[in-house]
């Protein structure tokens, strides 16, 4: 078990600053998910914790100790790589055992550990096979078993589920949540899939272009996004955003907060528009509504409207968000907040 801390960390590749003065504390025993668009530096952060891609400046602390000079194999850290990085010439057993052998674990203990871990991830029947004869999901479990068997105090996972089909991914998500409960160690999990982030995390760290945009539990990220980027990154479809027309302020609302109706609403934000597309997704339906020269997505549990139909869209005031010119969210306590609400009436 261990906490992880980044102190004023920067990382450059070929003189280009990829991570800019990053400070982050990951608490002991939490399931922290690093999420963000491709190329924002998620893998780079994990590699710094593991010690296989050291920071350019600043310090990485594990359990309060600066680990800059500690070799990757001695940090108590295990990592599941984005592409698994399984040793192809070794059998499944040898793959799982390799780290133990290097740590001079006795043969009897090794065998016992390998058997119990492979039973836990369902690899018992494949121990003597070569990885090339196994499926993607099975290989993914080798990578997991190889990390688990070392009993690390920090578990790093780099998009471990990205190569699996949707069903297996859903299953593995649950397995990983249970695994975290059982082990109680610190998990740092990288993904660019917000569903994974929302469903597994204790804390989400949302990054963009090497900067942390928000660090908070999933509920907070969803209900109180700190800026437009976060608001639009989390949620499918993303939050609707448009100019309020007052001092550069923008307003936004989530598609699922909007209420579609054939009668005019009474909330400050209430518009009449035309349905241009309808996507029936099973339990819910998505509509794209054209209004003046813009359009909004709304999500509804009932499938009531047809294309070309005129509908009213209203949004409850408490589900409205406002963002300043700098993109940051304007809190409800802001002195002009009520004037922004009023401004919605003339939108």
């Amino acid at each position: 078990m261990a906490s992880i801390e980044f102190v004023n960390v920067t990382k450059e590749f070929d003189k280009k600053e990829i991570i800019k003065d990053l400070n982050l504390k990951i608490e002991d025993g939490t399931f922290t998910v690093l999420v963000g668009p491709s190329g924002c530096g998620k893998t780079t952060l994990l590699r710094m914790i593991a010690g296989i891609g050291p920071q350019t400046s600043g310090a990485v602390l594990i359990d309060g100790k600066d680990v800059t000079d500690i070799a990757p194999g001695k940090r108590g850290v295990a990592m599941v790589f984005q592409n698994y990085a399984i040793y192809p010439t070794m059998s499944v057993r040898e793959n799982i055992e390799f780290g133990l052998k290097n740590n001079k674990v006795k043969k009897a203990e090794r065998t016992e550990l390998v058997e119990s871990i492979s039973a836990a991830v369902g690899l018992t029947d494949f121990l003597d096979r070569k990885p090339s004869t196994l499926s993607g999901g099975q290989r993914q479990r080798i990578a997991l078993a190889r990390a688990m068997v070392k009993k690390p105090s920090v578990f790093l996972m780099d998009e471990p589920l990205s190569n699996l089909d949707a069903k297996l991914r859903a299953q593995m998500r649950i397995d990983l949540i249970e695994l975290h409960k059982k082990l109680g160690t610190t998990f740092v999990y990288v993904t660019h899939d917000q569903v994974e982030a929302m469903s597994m995390a204790d804390t989400i760290v949302l990054m963009n272009q090497g900067l942390i945009q928000q660090e908070a539990p999933p509920e907070t990220i969803y209900h109180e996004p700190s800026n437009i980027f976060v608001a639009q990154f989390i949620g499918v479809p993303p939050m609707n955003i448009d100019e309020l027309g007052v001092g550069g302020v923008k307003f936004g609302f989530r598609p699922e907060s909007a209420i579609g109706s054939t009668e005019a609403g009474t909330t400050p934000f209430s518009i009449r528009g035309e349905v241009v597309t309808r996507e029936m997704l099973g339990s819910e339906t998505l509509y794209k509504i054209n209004y003046k020269d813009t359009s909004f997505m709304i999500k509804s549990l009932e499938d009531r409207f047809t294309v070309n139909q005129q509908v009213y869209v209203s949004v409850p005031t408490e589900k409205m968000y406002f963002f300043g010119e700098d993109g940051n969210r304007i809190p409800t306590s802001h002195p002009s907040y009520s004037s922004y609400i009023e401004a919605l009436r003339s939108y």
């Binding site: 590699r47 010690g51 990592m79 790589f81 990085a85 040793y87 010439t89 390799f98 290097n102 190889r146």
Partner: peptide, 27 residues
């Protein structure tokens, strides 16, 4: 040979000598 395989071995506490003989050579 992908860099990640070598890095995985480093995380598995293998020294460079081991990486050469147990990973690079068999591959």
């Amino acid at each position: 040979i992908p860099e990640e395989i070598i890095e995985a071995a480093r995380l598995d506490n293998a020294n460079e000598f081991k990486i050469m003989w147990k990973i690079m050579v068999p591959m």
